[in-house]
Amino acid sequence: MNKTIQLQDLGNKDYKETWEYQEELFKAIVDLKIRNRREELNLETPNYFLFVEHPHVYTLGKSGDLTNLLLSEKQLEDKGATFYKINRGGDITYHGPGQIVGYPIIDLENFFTDIHKYLRFLEESIILTLQEYGLECGRSEGETGVWLGVGTPFARKICAMGVRASRWVTMHGFALNVNADLGYFDNIIPCGIRGKAVTTLNVELGVERVDEEEVKAKILKHFANIFEATFEKSN
């Protein structure tokens, strides 16, 4: 079992280009697994973790409701945003500058074969990261992601999650609001959940800006510990 994960930071990159790149890595792993089974081989499958920041974009999961996007095509254009219907779970979400997006493309058979456990571990890596900043956060029953103020009238989401898995290979992942412009969330019903707010790390800490590289380092530390994995930088 290969528990080494190749880390790539793509910087600011178009959503569609990144999605296509994810699909390429995902397909290569799946194809290798199929070959292993057909030819009775035992070739090691690789794992990847992509960090990226996207220009303004809204994405709708395969079970999502298009009415949760509150903008017309013209309004999207005016806001400099794009829209894609994609093949992950979950409803609608927003990606943009000031948000740390993480896409683990890993073969879960290198770790464990439980998609629910995988989602909980993803959440835990974010929860532990935010706790380092002194925030009380956790899960909201029946709602994937990481929340603050759970069980109060002031519940607010700080990290959205949506994944796809096939043959135990994952893609898509999480989006953590660090210094994001919350105004862009006003144009959707985030994750299809009405009446709950969205927040960012800098707002919660009452600071103008949080060091995103520092946040990434903390996420990787906790992800590696939880998954008992090792990160290796690659181009």
Score class of each variant (00 low, 15 high):
S234P: 00
G11A: 05
R167Y: 05
A165T: 11
G145D: 00
G149Y: 10
G183P: 00
P55S: 03
G80E: 11
G64E: 03
N2L: 15
H172P: 01
E132R: 10
L50P: 00
R139S: 05
T170F: 01
H116Q: 07
G192S: 12
L220R: 08
D78L: 15
D181S: 09
P46S: 02
T45W: 02
T152D: 07
A165K: 05
Q6F: 14
E214M: 09
L205S: 09
N177W: 00
Q75M: 15
V101T: 13
T170D: 04
R139K: 12
L182C: 02
A165F: 04
K27Y: 07
D31H: 12
G80F: 13
V207F: 14
A229Q: 04
V30E: 05
I126M: 14
N225L: 12
R209G: 03
E23Y: 04
E24M: 13
T113L: 01
Y94G: 07
T67Y: 11
E40A: 08
G98P: 11
T200Q: 13
R194Q: 14
E77D: 14
K157S: 03
C137D: 04
S140Y: 07
R120M: 08
G102W: 09
K117R: 05
K221F: 06
I226K: 01
Y103D: 04
R194W: 12
F111Q: 01
N87S: 15
R139Y: 03
P104W: 06
P46V: 02
N235Q: 14
R164I: 00
G192F: 11
F83P: 15
K16N: 02
F51E: 03
V150F: 14
E232Q: 07
K196Q: 11
K16R: 10
G61A: 06
T152P: 07
K3A: 07
